[in-house]
């Protein structure tokens, strides 16, 4: 550890402490405190930065480059200009995937925004057994995706729990995951079910950071519960709301596991989301170039979304 040069750091407590005093013997004894700190700060960041450069930025650039090559992993890549983009543009399955992803994203996010806020408002009230109720609501956050996928696949079975429960209210049996109209909504329902507790925690944290005095003042001014919600809660919660909007969209756009293990992208491609399309094109058909081109489209999509969200965040007075 760094104790080795500790004895050198003899500081004379005099007025107007000069931070250019050469302190660090282990740093060659030449660097001023300010320069030493500059280096120390940079060195703290360096490992993480290097890692991200190697495993995030370089792959991103590589994806951009690869999208102009034909590459099957076995033979060396061959430059083919825009042919990959042309190929996916002319591939009806790509268009279908794009819209499936868009539907899934908004299908999951929109209900999450409202239901998670509703949950947080419910849990923010005083009620008997509140800590236990909160714990139970938040427990699913800890659950692994694959377990969720397996349980829901089991429940969506034609003979499964979902059909049995719907049978109680007189709705006939459906093969949820193998019917074109119901497969995507079935996956969306899982996404919503899973997302609500997580975003509920975030909203709840936001609600609890609103000072109680504001509510008291509003009550004294004669504001009812609804007015307090609209004029105190909503404006003060705005940063959290925007954060949840970004996070929910960005987490929905990369859904992959459920379509893979529950529907294999089917029936008829109705659940083949873009990440699944990329995976299939790259690792099932070994068309790495086309997969990279599809990745670039997905990235543009995510990038555009993030820019819009940042703009909104700024307008929301967060920065």
């Amino acid at each position: 550890m760094a104790e080795s040069y500790a004895p050198a750091a003899k500081v004379r407590p005099k007025a107007g402490f000069d931070d250019r005093l050469p302190l660090g013997a282990a740093w060659g004894g030449r660097l001023s405190l300010r320069a030493r700190l500059r280096w120390a700060g940079f060195l703290f960041v360096l490992p993480a930065l290097l890692h991200l450069l190697i495993f995030k930025f370089y792959p991103m650039l590589e994806a951009a480059r690869l999208s102009f090559f034909r590459y099957d992993l076995l033979t060396p890549p061959v430059f083919n200009g825009l042919l990959n983009y042309k190929a996916i543009w002319e591939n009806p399955l790509f268009h279908q995937s794009f819209w499936v992803s868009a539907k899934y994203m908004f299908g999951v996010s929109l209900p999450e925004w409202f239901l998670a806020l509703g949950l947080a408002l419910l849990l923010n009230r005083r009620m008997p057994g509140q800590p236990l109720i909160r714990l139970a609501y938040f427990l699913p956050i800890a659950m692994s995706q694959i377990v969720v996928a397996m349980v829901w696949k089991f429940m969506y079975n034609p003979l499964g729990l979902v059909n049995t429960l719907l049978g109680f209210v007189g709705i006939g049996r459906t093969n949820w995951l193998s019917t074109e109209e119901t497969a995507l909504p079935a996956l969306i329902a899982i996404g919503v079910w899973r997302g609500i507790p997580l975003f509920g925690v975030i909203y709840l944290a936001g609600l609890q950071s609103i000072p109680k005095e504001y509510y008291e003042a509003a009550t004294i001014d004669g504001a009812g519960p609804w007015q307090r919600f609209v004029h105190v809660t909503l404006p003060l919660l705005m940063p959290t709301i925007l954060f949840v909007m970004v996070m929910s969209l960005l987490s929905a756009v990369k859904v992959f596991l459920n379509p893979l293990v529950m529907t294999e992208g089917g029936p008829n491609g109705t659940t083949r989301v873009l990440p699944y399309f990329i995976y299939e094109t790259g690792f099932a058909y070994y068309r790495m170039g086309e997969a990279a081109a599809a990745s670039m489209v997905l990235f543009a999509f995510v990038f555009g979304l993030t820019l819009i969200q940042l703009r909104l965040l700024r307008r929301g007075g967060v920065e």
């Binding site: 993480a48 930065l49 991200l52 190697i54 495993f55 995030k56 930025f57 370089y58 792959p59 991103m60 590589e62 994806a63 690869l66 960005l250 990369k254 992959f256 990440p275 990329i278 995976y279 790259g282 690792f283 790495m288 997969a291 990279a292 990745s295 997905l298 990235f299 995510v302 990038f303 993030t306």
Partner: peptide, 21 residues
């Protein structure tokens, strides 16, 4: 900012090149 921007690069997007790296 550079670090933050990698949040836009989940493994699902850069799957192929990350595998190559």
């Amino acid at each position: 900012r550079l670090i933050l921007s990698t949040m836009m690069l989940p493994i699902e997007i850069i799957l192929v090149p990350t595998f190559l790296v």
